[in-house]
Design a protein around this nucleic acid. Structure first.
Length: 345
DNA sequence: CGCATTTGACCATC
DNA sequence: GATGGTCAAATGCG
């Protein structure tokens, strides 16, 4: 396992560096003031920095565990603390345990700006299957806060949750607070990334989808919006990860990557592909910026679909250099992906 | 019918 | 006591 881990880190490192290199190239292409706006350039700079930060971080910290969260089912997670009528004691302590755990879970916020024109109710999705479990009016906030947790929580004990709150001033901006790390396996992530329109059969049965937009259309729209308007910013980090990430104030990707996990329905196992404690949480690269109203309501397979479509679009016809670079972190870390697929140079 | 969302209530923390 | 976060029954949708 150790060897595998080391190998994995190496691979990731290489990927990161390659990505950085690619980003520089992209940036170079965008240096012409007339060809792109400053924002784009800045974004590239940030991403480059992130990439190198990440690489440096890896070198520095090696296999250190960023968070130490177990990848299995945490204690006290197996049952609903309330529903299970065990002894009052255990119930009480279980619940408390959860709260305590929640408190110590890593947490970070991303500000997701959805470009105008999307006219959406909800923001992006990030490649995970979220299930809404609550909504609450927050004092002083115009819009309610929605609470999501990983759909695989029951099956795999994944503790990841997120809160989505629309910004008061700018309704097109969402504050998304992630908590915990995905310890689950998102099967759809492992599906071939270059998808065409096979989508419907690759969805986990469990997810209900409310997107009524044609998939291709959706992908295009997303692609478009991402290009034009989407911004994802990491605002803050909590817990130890904040320190670890401190060197990288730039954007960083959604950390809870289901890396190294392969799902086979009820089996959880962590192949040596990735120490997700390590990689899973720190991916200071740009996050997979899927943004779609449709996913707000718990799209699950859809975002993967979109991701793949976007990627395929980006890598084939549109040749938007930006696009493919915005995703690979997800993929490269996932299956020690061969950068040549993405960066054939 | 099964699943996800909604929503009111409960609980912990501040 | 106020507030935020979570639970779970009720509801709705495909």
């Amino acid at each position: 396992m150790e060897n595998a881990r080391a190998w994995e880190q190496k691979t990731t490192l290489v990927n990161e560096l390659m990505q950085g290199k690619e980003l520089v190239k992209q940036l170079q292409m965008h240096l012409d003031p007339s060809s792109s706006d400053e924002e784009t350039r800045n974004m590239f700079v940030e991403k480059i920095l992130s990439s190198y930060d990440k690489a440096l971080f890896m070198l520095k910290w090696g296999a250190s565990d960023g968070e130490g969260r177990p990848m299995g089912v945490p204690a006290g997670m197996s049952n609903s603390p309330r529903s299970d009528s065990g002894s009052p004691h255990s119930e009480d302590s279980d619940r408390r345990d959860i709260y305590k755990k929640r408190k110590t879970l890593l947490r970070w916020t991303e500000q997701v700006h959805v470009g105008s024109g999307m006219g959406l109710e909800g923001p992006f999705d990030d490649g995970y299957c979220w299930r809404k479990y609550g909504q609450k009016d927050i004092l002083g906030a115009k819009y309610p806060r929605a609470y999501y947790r990983c759909s695989h929580r029951n099956v795999q004990g994944c503790l990841a949750t997120k809160q989505v709150q629309r910004s008061d001033e700018d309704p097109s901006t969402f504050d998304v607070t992630y908590r915990g790390r995905h310890t689950c396996i998102q099967a759809s992530h492992l599906l071939p990334a270059i998808g065409s329109s096979e989508n419907s059969n690759q969805r986990p049965k469990q997810s209900q989808h409310h997107h009524h937009i044609q998939q291709s259309e959706q992908a295009q729209e997303i692609l478009f919006n991402f290009r034009t308007g989407l911004k994802v910013r990491t605002n803050d980090l909590d817990t130890e990860e904040q320190q670890l990430m401190s060197s990288s104030s730039s954007s960083f990707s959604f950390p809870s990557i289901p890396t190294g996990c392969v799902k086979t329905e009820n089996h959880i196992f962590s192949p040596p592909t990735m120490d997700h404690n390590f990689m899973g949480s720190f991916s200071p690269s740009f996050m997979p910026p899927i943004t779609a109203e449709s996913n707000y309501f718990g799209g699950c397979g859809s975002q993967n679909l979109m991701t793949s479509e976007i990627i395929s679009a980006a890598t084939s016809a549109t040749n938007s250099p930006t696009m493919d670079l915005d995703f690979p972190v997800e993929f490269d870390t996932n299956f020690s992906f061969n950068s040549h697929d993405f960066f054939p140079s």
